[in-house]
Amino acid sequence: MNRPSALNTFGRELGALALALLWCVPFYYLAIVSLKPMSEIFADPVGFPDQLAFANYAEAWRGTMGVSLGQAMLNSLIVTIGSVVAVIALGSASAYVIARNGRRMGTLLFFFFVIGIILPHQLSVVPLYSVMRQIGLVGNQLGLIVLYSGLMTPMSVFLYSGFVRTLPADYEEAAEVDGASRGRIFLKVIFPLLAPVTGTVAVMVGMVVWNDFFIQLIFLSGSPAQTLPVAVYGFVGEFSARWNLVFAAVFVSVVPILAFYLLAQKQLIKGFTGGIK
């Protein structure tokens, strides 16, 4: 494929461009409708706005039920970062134990963790809710961090295990000879070597937690700790059909993740596709 004909390439370019434009249609409407004044929303929902109503954003930003979108965004950020940090700690240590603990024990532990990836949490959510409610972990960020740490650990163990297995033990043996403790070896030698997969775990877990709706709806709705998806859902419930306000809120809610995506595009895609060669 080194020397494709110029015409061929041009054709592909044109095709790709056309498809990309089609793909952008929802983004286009997201942008223009969010700027439409109320008067145009019912009369001409589809056309380009005659005047740009930036006030929609001010109204959307206020959110509903006393939780502004800014507050919701902060809540989402706290939950996401907290969960990512906890999951990295739990996953990397467990994967290390799995990889360095004899074949039978290692395999057993591996499956013990990885089955959790497939079990849909729809079933576990009800008993979890009851218990967490009793110990005061419903309606606040800490509860969600604890919950996601639990739910996302299998995925991180899976990702870490695949990597740790391929790490030769030479480094550790060298460090051990130097008299370093195991904890120190892990922190100073192993964990840094895991950096690429740590990135993958951070991206995957971060995205799942940031965008998850089902659990956040059940655990946070109505609370001041509600996250972006819950806040947007509540907002749409209240302002449905006033598409300009809804879209302003949706736009605000997707800006952080899109911005993150633009900045860290390569790492992010790599994070998703890390397992493929």
Binding site: F213, P229, V232, S253, V254, L258, L268
Partner: peptide, 8 residues
Amino acid sequence: PVVMSPLA
């Protein structure tokens, strides 16, 4: 679109 919330 992959990075956006399915809800949004």
